[in-house]
Design a protein around this nucleic acid. Structure first.
Length: 221
DNA sequence: GACCAGGCACATC
DNA sequence: GATGTGCATGGT
């Protein structure tokens, strides 16, 4: 079974099992961007607590995030972990939006994809996954997001090594999939769903949608 | 109490 | 270029 087949069959199985995901969980592009930073190496449940704190304090707007004191911000996002660093990272991102785009997300997303990615990556605290998540889920751009689950699942399926470089595995997915926004959006979301529920460091075999995907050679199960 | 979670920057070799 | 480390909380 070739890489192309594995990639398309994995999508079908996950979609069949989980249905449409309609990602990202968040009410606005800004909330999605904040979530993208806060979820760095962190359980989403913790991020939700942090975001609800921001909402409660009415800090979840560009203007409020720009004006809020760094220590206060850190305190509010504390449940998401790494809160001192993440407070700075959020500030860096907000400052970037104001200095480059006059505080307009609309303007920011008008930037051509390649330029925008490069500029996002220049912000301290925004790496490849965060930049791509922002572009795909906040900006609705056709970008395939890679994360730890993607590497874990697809290395277990045998299409790559578990420590494959971000750009390399991203290139594999782009090469084997039609370049469609809905597909890229949905595929990554399904991967996270599968990762959370079945593809832990210790795989949970029963009922995994990918069980037996490649003639018993599947190490997801 | 150990392990885990939707990374990233930075130091060192 | 490759590898190691700090950052931290809340759930299982």
């Amino acid at each position: 079974m070739g890489t192309s087949q594995i990639i398309s069959s994995a999508f079908k199985r996950m979609y069949q099992a989980f249905g449409p995901q309609d990602w990202w969980p968040g009410d606005s592009p800004l909330e999605i961007m904040v979530g993208a930073v806060l979820t760095q190496n962190t359980n989403w449940a913790n991020v939700e607590i942090a975001i609800s704190n921001l909402k409660k304090e009415k800090i979840l707007s560009l203007k409020a995030l720009k004006e809020v004191n760094l220590n206060k911000l850190a305190k509010l996002i504390r449940p998401s972990g790494y809160y001192n660093i993440k407070a700075k990272r959020l500030k860096n991102l907000i400052n970037f939006i104001f200095s480059e785009y006059n505080g307009s997300l609309k303007k920011m997303f008008l930037e051509p994809d390649k330029n925008l990615r490069k500029k996002l990556l220049s912000v301290n605290g925004v790496g490849k996954e965060t930049a791509d998540s922002i572009m795909c889920y906040a900006g609705k751009k056709t970008v395939f997001v890679i994360d730890a689950y993607t590497k874990r699942i697809f290395s277990r399926l045998g299409i790559c090594k578990k420590d494959i470089e971000y750009d390399e595995i991203q290139g594999i997915f782009c090469k084997h999939l039609k370049e469609r926004y809905q597909l890229f959006n949905e595929y990554h979301a399904l991967i996270v769903n599968l990762g959370k529920n079945y593809c832990k460091p210790k795989p949970l075999c029963d009922n995994c949608p990918l069980k037996g995907i490649i003639n018993g050679k599947c190490k997801v199960n």
